[in-house]
Structures are given as structure tokens and as C-alpha cells.
Nucleic acid binder design. Structure first.
Lengths: 88, 88, 88, 88
DNA sequence: CACTGGAAAATGCCGC
DNA sequence: GCGGCATTTTCCAGTG
């Protein structure tokens, strides 16, 4: 029986250190993620300043990302729905 | 007048270069963002392996973030109220 | 061989009817939503006309909503913690 | 001197009544809006249950809503961007 | 592997 | 008319 077992200690020292480490690492990574997201916003703003249409840029990027086959499939389904609805 | 009027050129060379640069930078940043997200997943997995409860960890991190946000929020509300009261 | 195989029929009649119904219902509900949103705008405008500060009103309403939400949230967190502690 | 002048009263009675009315009306309208939004969710869920692709349905509805001229314009710009980027 | 919840992004709105 | 904010919608990770 040592003070390691102090009843008031919810976690032992090792577990406490691990917990701190985990939380800090995740918070650090979340910060990084936010920073990258912010940079993306900046690039869009800059693009807009140069006369590019941000909405279209987003669509272009989404389209490049999206699997070609999947894209075609989705468009085909949409065309089908539109046809049934009587829209061009 | 000048080559600026080349009808076949959809965007002039400068604009084309800019467009490519913009798209590539954003795609690169999106990749970075995904990589960071992946690292977060790794840390959670590691934590789980060490016996920590991921759901609770998430709650703890969310709480800490919220607490931090709350300070800024409260200051903003106070500023608003003060402004309405005319206390610059 | 029945008319079910008509190549020109993109969706069968039942599916077509369903699709039209779905789209019309959603469009109708979207209209309703917009109308309610418009009424909210009217009330804010009227309030402003009576000398109330719209931004402050928004903060007050947000606060009341948050307070209500907080009860449920805190209960959820407590349940989670209790579950982790094994106190079903 | 009547109770109307009670120094502890931050707003006079009329303003107080107005404020209550405003807040309550807005909260009521917000509730209505949420209810309608919830119904929309239900319809999408039902549609999904009947085999329709919710994501495509959303696109179809958005497209029907969007002004035709604007749609064509946006697509033209996107084609231009894609061409410059060398994508189909 | 579909659902649910929460974070992030996009759109629309208001004020300047 | 534009920038910033609030809301809404979309997306993605986690869970059962």
C-alpha cells in the first residue's frame, strides 16, 4: 500500500499523463486543421479578388475530386428524375 | 489591336495560370486537412488501445473548447450591451 | 411481355407518381418555411420600429434557446459519465 | 408619483409588454419553422424508404428552384474553368 | 453499412 | 455594393 493508491486520486499518475498527452495532441491537431481551413478561405478570397467566381471554383474542385463513374451515375439519375417531372 | 483579343483563348494566359494555381493550392490544402484529420483518428485509436473511452474524451475536448469559446462570446455580448447603453 | 418493359419508360408509373408527390410536397413545405421566415423578419422590423435593438433581441432569444438546450445536454453528458462508471 | 415611475423598473410597462410580445412571437415562429423543417426531413426519409436517392432529390429541387439563366451562366463558366485546367 | 450526431461550409441577410 | 454574421445545409467521422 503506497500513496499511489490514494483513494482521492481518480487516475494513477501514468494514466493521468497519458490523458493529458492525448487531449493536448488532439487539441493541437484540431488547431492545425482549423488553420488549414482558414488558409483555404484565404485562397478563395484571393481568387475572388482576382475576378474568379468562388461558387464555380468550388464546383470545379468538387467535380475533380468526385469519382468520374459516380458523377455520371448521379447525373443519370438526376436526368431521369427531371424527365419524370417533365422538366427539360 | 493586341493578342488580348485572341478569340480562341477562353481565358488569357495570366488568368489561366492563376486558375491553375488556385485550384492546385486548394487541392493541396484539402489534402493537408485530410491528413491532419487522419492523425486525429490515430490518436483516438491509440487512446482507445490504452483503455480510454473515446466518447468521453470527445466530450471532454468539446467541453474545453466550449469553455474557451464562452469567454469570447460573453465578452462579445457584454460589448454589445454596453454599446446599446451608449457606453462606447 | 408487358408494358412494364417499355424501354421509353424511365420509371414505372407508380414510382413516377411517388416522385412527383415527393417533390411537390417538399417544394410546398419549403414555401411554408420561407413564409414563416418572412414573418420573423416582419416582427424584427416592427420591433426595430418600436425602438428595440434587433441584434440584442437576437442575443436574448438565442440565450433563452441555449438555456433550454443546456438542460437536455447536461443530462446527456451525465448519462454518458454514469454509463462509463457502470452505474447503468 | 405612481408605480409607473418605480425606479427599479428598467423599462416602462408598455415597453415591457411589447418586448415580451416580440420575443414570444419570434419564439413561436421559430417553433413553427422547426416543425416545417422536421416535416421536410420526414418526407426525405419516406422518399428514401421508397428507394429514391435523397442527395439527387435535393439536387433536383435545387435545380428547379434556381433561375434558368443563372444556371446556364454558371455551367458555362464551369466549362471554361475545366477547359483551362485540361479536364474533360 | 446505414444512421446519427456534430463539425464545417455555403448560402442568404443585414448593416455600413 | 461589399463584408461580416447568422442560419442553413452538407459532409464526415463514429457507432451499433
Amino acid at each position: 500500500m503506497t500513496e499511489t493508491y490514494a483513494a482521492a486520486d481518480p487516475l494513477n499518475a501514468t494514466a493521468g499523463s497519458q490523458l493529458k498527452s492525448i487531449v493536448e495532441r488532439i487539441e493541437r491537431l484540431n488547431t492545425e486543421k482549423s488553420e488549414v481551413a482558414e488558409q483555404i478561405v484565404q485562397v478563395f478570397a484571393e481568387a475572388k479578388g482576382n475576378g474568379f467566381d468562388a461558387a464555380v471554383l468550388r464546383k470545379v474542385i468538387a467535380r475533380r475530386k468526385k469519382d468520374r463513374a459516380k458523377l455520371a451515375e448521379e447525373e443519370a439519375v438526376m436526368d431521369l428524375y427531371l424527365a419524370v417531372l417533365g422538366d427539360s
